[in-house]
């Protein structure tokens, strides 16, 4: 792949005060190349959403963020706050899980998309209108001319998600961050939205950072997958090798435990135990209590991410031992 568009280095996000900080993201590094679709997969408390929000500097005020988030050569964490609005929406677009709460209920969708363009580009109204219509067509909105003056509550969940996507793509951003864009949607509508995202990628050649808990969605549209658990990256690989040759016991377990349409096993494989709440596991590998191949070392020391095949990084002592 080509050079990195987004390069996250040693990102750590903490909440709370001095002696007992709650570390929700713990020293993670990964990159998104130009035109690449990367999925961050994780369960609740994995820190995946916090990671996405930190790219736009939208984490809550109380959080302490350290490390580097380099976007096109600039460290976003070092930029003055007042320069961020110029990047949000223009360079980086975002789609949220709950499209209703992200849209203004008192503005027509035409105006909301128009505003997204007007904020960043100085072009005359008739041309903006053309662009709005083109965007709505792009996201698959039927009959866009008549929908311009409609309000968000007149749309279904899937249609709102299309409007959100139109706003996110209004200024042709280089990176699109989508935080669980299909989680709130029904299966058949989810398929529509995923098809739309593939279409967006094909036409704009944008990079996409997709946050999800659903391995099926990842398999559907991602080229590379970052697996997060309790604030750490456990595995980072291109999608094909992750799904055919997962190396971390967590990823392996997750893949085996997901019910699929065509397996005929009597029982599902299950990972024992519970997902730890964010920041509660302080030392060693966070997956250790649930891991079937854990060793003594895992309790003391977090395994570093080690590269196995090209582009396939895994953080696990047992994997390292088996490979040695």
């Amino acid at each position: 792949m080509s050079e990195a568009l987004l390069d996250i280095k040693d990102l750590t996000i903490e909440f709370g005060s001095g002696s007992q900080p709650l570390r929700v993201v713990d020293n993670i590094s990964f990159a998104v190349s130009l035109g690449e679709t990367v999925g961050i997969v994780g369960e609740s408390g994995s820190g995946k959403s916090m990671t996405a929000l930190s790219v736009l500097r939208l984490v809550p005020e109380a959080a302490r963020v350290s490390g580097q988030i380099i976007f096109e050569g600039r460290d976003l964490l070092k930029l003055p706050k007042r320069e961020m609005p110029a990047i949000r929406g223009k360079e980086i677009g975002m789609i949220f899980q709950e499209p209703m709460s992200s849209l203004n209920p008192l503005m027509t969708i035409g105006d909301q998309i128009d505003e997204a363009i007007r904020l960043h580009e100085d072009i005359p109204a008739p041309e903006r209108r053309k662009r709005v219509l083109a965007l709505l067509r792009l996201v698959g909105m039927p009959d866009p001319e008549n929908r311009l003056s409609a309000y968000p509550d007149q749309f279904s969940g899937g249609m709102r998600q299309r409007v959100m996507a139109a706003i996110a793509m209004a200024c042709n951003p280089k990176l699109l961050i989508a935080d669980e864009p299909t989680t709130a949607l029904d299966v058949t509508i989810q398929a529509q939205v995923l098809a739309m995202m593939l279409d967006i990628r094909a036409r704009f050649n944008s990079s996409i950072l997709l946050i999800t808990h659903d391995l099926g969605v990842v398999a559907e549209i991602c080229e590379r997958v970052v697996v997060m658990y309790a604030g750490r990256i456990l595995e980072d690989a291109d999608a094909r090798s992750l799904f055919s040759n997962a190396r971390h016991p967590y990823t392996q377990g997750l893949l085996r435990s997901v019910p699929t349409l065509n397996d005929t096993r009597k029982r599902l494989y299950q990972i024992p135990g519970s997902v730890p709440p964010a920041g509660t596991i302080k030392a060693g590998c966070p997956f250790r209590p649930r891991c079937s191949v854990r060793m003594e070392r895992c309790a003391v020391e977090m395994p570093p991410l080690r590269t196995y095949d090209p582009g396939h990084r895994v953080a696990c002592w047992a994997t390292a031992e088996a490979a040695a």
């Binding site: 299950q270 024992p272 135990g273 519970s274 730890p276 709440p277 509660t280 209590p289 649930r290």
Partner: peptide, 14 residues
């Protein structure tokens, strides 16, 4: 299988 691992490990002190 569940009793194989320390459940208390997973319930936070908070």
């Amino acid at each position: 299988r569940l009793s194989d691992f320390p459940v208390d490990d997973l319930i936070s002190r908070e």
